[in-house]
């Protein structure tokens, strides 16, 4: 067990954890507010990556400079993911909320949405893996450290940290953040205080989708290929991370993601990469059995 291999696994795990964190944020925010596992969240992440790929290819053929391509395609991907998140909420979840349907119905509807979006992309695009251009160049100043942490990984880590900071500011210090916190605590009371709940929920979906899209583009750049199925496993793993940290809690989601990313990376490095996914799912089952409220979550007692 040499030191280099250890650091390699450590940073690999951190990168992985960052991506999980970007997706897990959407899960945890939506869960915190509407108590719904948004199954189709992974699909939003996939749609973000696909939109980024399509727009960037079109722009490349138009012959734009690389910086313009990166910025424009990333922006479009984020906008489209937000639009999909918003529309999804309006179609699949809002009518159920209006009719006070049981939670089981919302979950089934979410599974349906996930299946729909996956096959929508499959039919409209392709079932093959598509190569994704690497937008992140190798930085020269980073050359001496590149054997531990490659430049794309560095960019992923930094972006994640920036997104986290922005999100914390949004939730802690803005008016809409206050409304979100109020809604998650008590919906009826929030309405009485003049919070437009439907708007808050829409915005939550939009913000969650935006972070997922960022994650989608980053991972696509890093791995170099995408396909219609990428959202499913990533989504489930991000959900594991969100539960691990305590679902509904934003710092929890980030912490849980890093813990999951690191353990997965070490497991794959030292034991077997074949059973990596098995390990993640086993992890989920064990957490839910022994500590369903997660690392940072509070155990709630249900009152009658």
């Amino acid at each position: 067990m040499d030191f280099d291999f250890l650091t390699y696994l450590f940073f690999g795990g951190l990168t992985r954890g960052s991506i999980y964190a970007l997706i897990a944020l959407g899960y945890t925010m939506v869960y915190g507010i509407v108590e719904l596992i948004n199954f189709a969240h992974g699909e939003i992440y996939m749609i973000g990556a696909f939109t980024g790929l399509i727009i960037s290819s079109v722009l490349t053929m138009l012959g734009l400079p690389i910086l313009a391509i990166v910025v424009l395609s990333a922006l479009t991907a984020i906008i489209y993911s937000c639009a999909y998140g918003y529309t999804m909420e309006k179609i699949a979840y809002k009518p159920l909320r209006d009719s006070n349907a049981p939670r089981l119905s919302a979950l089934i509807s979410a599974i349906g949405m996930s299946l729909f979006l996956q096959n929508y992309v499959l039919l409209a695009q392709t079932s093959d893996f598509l190569p994704f251009p690497n937008f992140i160049p190798d930085f020269e100043f980073w050359e001496p450290y590149a054997h531990i942490l490659t430049s794309p990984e560095l960019v992923i880590l930094i972006t994640t940290v920036i997104v986290m900071i922005c999100l914390t500011i949004l939730i802690k210090f803005t008016k809409i953040g206050k409304a979100m916190r109020a809604t998650s605590q008590d919906k009826v009371m929030a309405v009485l205080m003049g919070v437009n709940i439907n708007r808050v929920i829409s915005i939550t979906f939009i913000v969650g989708s935006a972070t997922a899209a960022i994650g989608g583009i980053l991972i696509a750049c890093h791995i170099g290929q995408i396909n219609f199925y990428m959202g499913f496993t990533a989504g489930i793993k991000a959900f594991v991370a969100a539960v691990l940290g305590g679902i509904g809690s934003i710092p929890g989601a980030v912490l849980g993601s890093f813990v999951l990313g690191l353990t997965e990376s070490f497991f794959a490095g030292y034991f077997s990469s074949d059973y990596e996914d098995v390990f993640a799912f086993l992890f989920l089952v064990l957490i839910l059995i022994f500590r369903p409220s997660g690392i940072l979550g509070r155990a709630e007692t249900k009152k009658v």
Binding site: L36, I37, R103, V240, V243, V278, L284, V285
Partner: peptide, 23 residues
């Protein structure tokens, strides 16, 4: 072990179990 969990957690755990068996 898992039936103590609330509805939506149960869905995810069973999903995870299904995937474990397949993998």
């Amino acid at each position: 072990p898992v039936l103590r969990l609330r509805g939506d957690y149960l869905a995810i755990v069973t999903l995870g179990f299904g995937e474990i068996i397949r993998l």
